[in-house]
């Protein structure tokens, strides 16, 4: 009913504007536009640094140093704004992919901007602290870029069209079946099964989650215990053992899922707090510079 409600429209609608026919990742965005801009900027700085003659020597306090410092500080603030942009769903046209692309490449260019700003004069002071924090933020970001580029395919392969809820549901379903199947077992055997039912599939802590190793897995323990046991009815035991095996497979899938998710997220717990530490150190650096002018 194009015209029942509205008769005139411009030809290129807003929907057309964000329409892409193929997937294009943030690194390749717009034919590596931001990689080119950022690379050009770095090249410009490196060349001009060599050409510009500052007396007595290059340092942060020269006009050239101030220029780089100002660019760097503003860039840091703008890069930080990504966290806000990402969550602020305004109605106007913007693409978070473009922002991410610019964030990554301009963020990397800070290595040159920041370091050349120092004139390679580093020491044990608040100024170098700011530089060091910046480098750590960039390093953690670099890790983020690498995992973003490599892990999603593994995440997709592992989940095989299942959602996280479905993975948990599958484990719960095995638990219910185990609960019924374990009724004929002897007390010792059923204790091992009960331990598996009682264990939280998330148990194990952050380290286990990141490594995907769960040495205290009660399900694996129950399977081993049951295989060694002679006490219960053999058929009942075989049925429970089979279910435990299936539950282990389901647990393995969920744990791999959680491991990959954790690897994709863990760096943000370094990147973001360090950014705020960097902004604090940067403020101290700027204030002290002006104070001792």
């Amino acid at each position: 009913m194009a015209s029942l409600f509205q008769r005139r429209r411009s030809k290129a609608t807003q929907v057309e504007r964000v329409r892409e026919r193929q997937h294009e990742g943030f690194l390749r965005y717009a034919g590596f536009r931001w990689a080119k801009i950022s690379g050009g900027l770095c090249l410009l700085i490196i060349i001009s640094y060599a050409l510009v003659d500052v007396t007595p020597r290059h340092n942060g306090g020269s006009w050239y140093g101030y220029t780089l410092g100002t660019i760097g500080a503003l860039l840091i603030l703008w890069l930080t704004a990504l966290g806000y942009r990402k969550r602020r769903m305004t109605n106007d046209y913007w693409s978070l992919k473009a922002w991410t692309s610019a964030h990554v490449y301009l963020g990397l260019s800070l290595i040159v901007i920041g370091t050349w700003h120092t004139g390679f004069q580093l020491g044990w002071n608040v100024h170098t602290l700011a530089w060091a924090l910046m480098m750590l933020v960039i390093l953690s970001g670099l890790y983020g870029v690498i995992v973003y580029a490599t892990l999603p395919a593994a995440l997709s392969n592992n989940r095989e069209q299942m959602t996280q809820m479905q993975m948990l549901e599958a484990i719960r379903a095995f638990d219910r079946q185990l609960h019924n199947a374990a009724q004929p077992l002897t007390a010792t055997d059923s204790a091992a099964v009960l331990a598996s039912l009682d264990q939280d599939p998330f148990a194990g802590g952050a380290w286990a989650r990141l490594r995907g190793r769960y040495p205290n897995c009660a399900t694996a323990a129950a399977r081993v215990a049951l295989a060694a046991s002679q006490s219960s009815n053999a058929d009942a035991r075989a049925k429970v053992a089979q279910l435990l095996l299936q539950k282990e497979a389901a647990l393995a899938r969920l744990r791999e899922h959680l491991r990959l998710r954790a690897l994709l997220e863990i760096w943000l717990y370094v990147h973001v707090p360090l950014t705020f530490a960097l902004i604090a150190a940067l403020s101290a650096h700027i204030i002290s510079v002006f104070f001792y002018w």
């Binding site: 964000v18 997937h23 990742g25 943030f26 990402k86 046209y93 913007w94 693409s95 978070l96």
Partner: peptide, 8 residues
């Protein structure tokens, strides 16, 4: 689409 950070 606008809010996807990676272009997925």
């Amino acid at each position: 689409v606008r809010a996807c950070p990676t272009g997925a």
